[in-house]
């Protein structure tokens, strides 16, 4: 501790919780445990959400209708992480990307590996690389990372949210 900080004291705020995932997220994660990516669709604007949170945040209505999406998609955006983050076991540099699954209207954050960092680009087609089935649980960590499929890139205009 530095000299000018000698009079500081550390508060020991520590609270225990039993967090619950939410009904929609619970349904989603239970399907993830079976290797399926199940999205939810807005009854008003038809937007497809994965992972679903149980509501369309644009329309403020519940999203009950569910549909299974493939584990393929495209890179909507990405960043190459060069600094180690405390508690994160992944060794930098690595790619964190917003991945838009085929048929979804929002993207989610995941890793991209099995790629030369210089090749990563917006619009690149990717596919999920799943862990061994015996290791699956109710978590998106069932997908180790995404890897390039080698298909032609998609036009970034597809990422525009449909009105």
């Amino acid at each position: 501790m530095s000299e000018e900080k000698k009079d500081f004291f550390v508060s020991d705020i520590s609270l225990s919780y039993q967090y619950t995932a939410g009904n929609a997220t619970t349904r989603f994660l239970n399907k993830v445990a079976e290797g399926k990516l199940v999205a939810q669709k807005c009854p008003k604007c038809s937007a497809v959400y994965v992972p679903p949170r149980g509501s369309c945040p644009r329309c403020g209505v519940a999203t009950e209708e569910e549909l299974e999406l493939p584990d393929t998609g495209a890179v909507e955006s990405f960043t190459i992480v060069h600094i180690p983050i405390p508690g994160n076991p992944i060794v930098p540099p690595y790619v964190s990307a917003m991945i838009r699954l085929d048929g979804a209207d929002i993207s989610f954050l995941h890793l991209i590996q099995e790629i030369d960092l210089a090749d990563i680009r917006i619009g690149m087609r990717v596919q999920a690389v799943w862990k061994d089935k015996s290791d699956w649980g109710t978590t998106l960590e069932n997908i180790k990372w995404f890897k390039p499929t080698g298909e032609d890139d998609v036009d970034p205009s597809v990422f525009k949210f449909k009105e």
Partner: peptide, 15 residues
């Protein structure tokens, strides 16, 4: 105990 219900699922019905 609202069990699984998250904040969105609690708020939406009353709104």
């Amino acid at each position: 105990d609202a069990k699984a219900a998250n904040e969105v699922e609690l708020i939406m019905p009353v709104v």
